[in-house]
């Protein structure tokens, strides 16, 4: 799935990484526990989360993820966005709740991929 399509499916605002929306991603992970992301993610490139702190971005960096989707209308503070921008990670924000956001993406073909 192209990242731009994720933004469209979730009516999401693009908060940074506008120039990387044509990137292709193959699987995603929905999680509020960064501990679990660090333990179980393999090559999921998209992180869908309701948590909004710099550790979300650092966790995504560690796992080589390419796109973060903040759900439930969460707006990350400027330092969080700066960190993502520096690291070349696309940040999207949607009003959808976690369950619905994941459901919509899954239904459109963005699946869970393998876990470690």
């Amino acid at each position: 799935m192209v990242i731009r399509q994720i933004a469209e499916l979730l009516s999401a605002k693009v908060l940074c990484g506008e120039d990387k929306l044509d990137g292709v991603v193959n699987s995603a992970c929905g999680c509020d526990m960064m501990s679990d992301v660090l333990a179980f993610v393999k090559d999921q490139a998209v992180l869908i989360t309701g948590l909004c702190n710099p550790q979300v971005v650092r966790t995504a960096i560690m796992m080589d993820m390419r796109c973060i989707v903040f759900v439930r209308g969460k707006m990350p503070p400027a330092d969080v966005l700066d960190l993502a921008e520096e690291s070349g990670i696309v940040v999207l924000a949607t009003n959808e709740r976690m369950y619905v956001a994941c459901g919509k993406l899954y239904q459109s073909g963005l699946h869970g991929g393998e876990v470690v």
Binding site: D32, M33, M34, S35, D36, L38, A39, L51, N53, Q55, V56, T59, V116
Partner: peptide
């Protein structure tokens, strides 16, 4: 509530 404290860190470091 910050996303840590699942008790996964040390086992993960070992893995």
């Amino acid at each position: 509530s910050l996303g840590f404290g699942a008790g996964m860190g040390l086992p993960n470091m070992k893995n």
